[in-house]
């Protein structure tokens, strides 16, 4: 079993699968959040369901947290291994001549996204866990919209969020289509995958930025 995990291709496939899992989660997260722009009550209903449903809270959430931790830890481990495979560096190395900035700097965009996640957890997830499982405060299905709106009163925070979404976009621009290549999918549908990658990688972070700016301006 340890041989299977140590194989470089298995590590690649594991990164790809966990990445695609997070991409699907991101879409679901976006769909719920965008409702806050149109309807306070729909956003509250969705959020209350996600925050109180047993399957979401005690099965999906731990899987998601495992997926996030796995993707980041594996990413850093692989980056360390990759850097170690060339101990003596080139004096002159022209990486931009044959590969995109995004593909060469996934560790940088990934590290920014990780920093953002820490901030995001501090803003939303930790208070939510504290509300439900530490202080055991009474169930209030209408509190979610106000909590969200309150978080985006601070311009500095909105700017930090928007910058982070920019790096998320850069990460996705390479990561999405790259995941398919890692899983062995490189065929006549490549054009579709690459087109969808661009649409998703720009559209979703742009949408998240819009939500943050909307709530800031809505005060």
């Amino acid at each position: 079993m340890s041989n299977v995990i140590q194989a470089s291709i298995i590590k690649k496939i594991a990164m790809a699968v966990s990445g695609l899992f997070l991409i699907i989660f991101l879409f679901q997260h976006f769909v719920i959040n965008i409702t806050s722009v149109f309807s306070e009550s729909i956003f509250n209903q969705f959020s209350h369901f996600m925050g109180s449903n047993f399957v979401v809270q005690f099965i999906a959430q731990p899987i998601l947290i495992f997926g996030v931790i796995f993707h980041f830890v594996m990413g850093f481990v692989l980056d360390f291994q990759n850097r170690s495979s060339r101990k003596i560096k080139y004096v002159k190395y022209k990486g931009s001549s044959n590969a995109s900035w995004m593909s060469r700097n996934m560790i940088i965009s990934g590290a920014v996204v990780l920093s953002f996640l820490i901030l995001h957890f501090y803003d939303f997830w930790i208070p939510e866990m504290n509300y439900k499982y530490v202080e055991f405060l009474p169930d209030d299905p209408n509190r979610y919209y106000d909590e969200l709106s309150h978080k985006f009163e601070d311009l500095v925070k909105v700017v930090l969020y928007v910058i982070s979404f920019g790096f998320l976009s850069l990460h996705l621009l390479h990561g999405f289509s790259s995941a398919f290549q890692s899983m062995g999918i490189n065929n006549k549908y490549n054009y579709l995958v690459k087109t969808f990658t661009i649409v998703y990688a720009i559209g979703i972070p742009l949408g998240f930025s819009f939500i943050a700016i909307f709530h800031y301006l809505n005060h």
């Binding site: 590590k11 690649k12 291994q81 170690s84 495979s85 990486g95 044959n98 590969a99 996934m106 790259s178």
Partner: peptide
């Protein structure tokens, strides 16, 4: 090292 699909 491991391939990261840069395409270089």
């Amino acid at each position: 090292g491991n391939c990261t699909n840069t395409g270089a």
